[in-house]
Design a protein around this nucleic acid. Sequence first.
DNA 1: ATGAAAGCGCTAACAA
DNA 2: TTGTTAGCGCTTTCAT
Lengths: 339, 339
Amino acid sequence: MKDQSGKKRVNLRDVAKAAGVSVATVSRVLNSPEAVTEKTRVRVQDVIDQLNFVPSAAARAINSGRTRFVGALVPTLDNAIFARFLASLERALGDRQLSLVVATTNSKPELEAEKAKGLLDIGAEGLIISGVTHSDEFTALIERTRVPTIATSYFDPTYALPTIGYDNAAAAQTALRHLHELGHRRVAVVHGPTRNNDRTQDRITGLTSFGQGMDLAWFEAPIGLHGGAEAARAVFTDGRATDAILCLSDVLAMGVQFGLQGQGIKVPKDVSLMGIDDLPGSAVSVPSLSTVHLPVQRMGEQAASALADWVEHEKRPENQLLEAHLIVRASTVPNERTQ
Amino acid sequence: MKDQSGKKRVNLRDVAKAAGVSVATVSRVLNSPEAVTEKTRVRVQDVIDQLNFVPSAAARAINSGRTRFVGALVPTLDNAIFARFLASLERALGDRQLSLVVATTNSKPELEAEKAKGLLDIGAEGLIISGVTHSDEFTALIERTRVPTIATSYFDPTYALPTIGYDNAAAAQTALRHLHELGHRRVAVVHGPTRNNDRTQDRITGLTSFGQGMDLAWFEAPIGLHGGAEAARAVFTDGRATDAILCLSDVLAMGVQFGLQGQGIKVPKDVSLMGIDDLPGSAVSVPSLSTVHLPVQRMGEQAASALADWVEHEKRPENQLLEAHLIVRASTVPNERTQ
DNA sequence: ATGAAAGCGCTAACAA
DNA sequence: TTGTTAGCGCTTTCAT
């Protein structure tokens, strides 16, 4: 005996009827079982199982005002760093019975605003976004709807929304300091597009204000192995001497590594190379990549629990600064000239 | 002015009142504008814009039975091949006004069943899954609920559910044939876990039945650069001669490449290397990776439109075989011994 | 072309 | 503890 084929979905009333109780009682065993006698609770639960009853989320939402899902707006899924963040976020939200709807923005503010509106229209109870630079339209939307929204990958206690992330400028400086300590002075910095990307901008600012007599040259490239490989070529075609290459993301660094290999330039013998992110693959590449670890996994967990609290208990979360730390591997060595 | 701050969301009744019409009329301008006089339609629409009214998705769902979202169950987000698929899927679904809820299963059938149930409970109108091997519980769930479900990354017209994907066995054979034609006979095959992964199993079967006097040795490794690097070590520690290494996924191949570099073994001079997937990075690695292109982007588009049609017009889609094709790059060269 | 009114499946007062 | 009942915001007959 399965359930009635051909007929429509079982509802509360069906269960109530079959169990010989009122709909309210059924609703109770669902939402506050402690308010129901052990005896009836068991009986009703039996019927529920029997009939394979599943409460309609829509009907629930319409009454409780809760849809139990939140949206995440990320620039892309094509960068492993976001994929890792989302995986962790999804897991942590799931623990709190929240679903995750993912939307990608391609780092386009208009697209972000549009997708955010779409998410809100379909009932997202909260939003996770990247960084603090957004279109006016988007900002107005968040302000107007007052939807719980957390900005990630960025830390800025002065921002209008709570931020949970790391200090991008400091992370970049950590990397540069490492190179400085190794005696490198002439550093090529390879970074992704700065337009609409405050994380990258911040890292650049951090580098610029580092001082210490560093001689920096800048190269912008599209994020991805390909972009990195191109950049590697650019670095060594303008004929300038370079002690080290600092990539503002690990994918870029791996791309640069490939680009250098293609030119017969050896890392770390001819040039030191480092990244920022610490992707799983970075430890495996040859040579293994020195980098700055960005705690995206923890960021996912923290953002999930903060957003859940906000959504459920109206508890606006505190800003959270997550520590990024240096990871020294094989791609960076002391500068021989300065030994 | 903006909308009323402090008060709750604007609803149909508010609009009706403000426009001096009935709620039915407002509903009409929303859902069948042609059934309303130009004049009233304009007036109502004005009020809607003015009040910034957005129909409640939940209330809509409760009436129409449509939630306008579907779920995708993927093994992981950590493999770029799935991230690419999802990105394409999300885009294509968005074009059809459908949202995407992503759930990861870690290739665990129990988790898949659990998450699928969760998705259905919250109202998913359709499901995208990977492969055709699933737990009985999952299968029963799909059968019972009759929820439109499409299996991807796999092609099998005999399967109970429509499949949209490629022929994994053939793809693997395409790769092996390429190696064979280059004169390689002793081939080490590096693959991911076969447990609960029919795509991998199929590829292995394809290889096994290839014949042609190929001498195959098998190495299982966890998917990822790290797994590949480990496998590279294993391949050359058992002292057996190897002409080429065939990896059943590109990440594994790149990992192997790193592993070989670590051992001072040169690709393609000492050994040819090839993958399957064709990730964006595969063209950039040094040497660039010969592989078999898997059309995941098109798969995302096709799956999206097929699922949308099924969900909206009850049109069960046909099975679709997408072509995988060989991409020859620098990592494979003729076997010198057999020249 | 428009409106009145009956639900959709559920939750939450309020009563008993 | 349990039941009755009034909505939630919308769609959809059925009248007019």
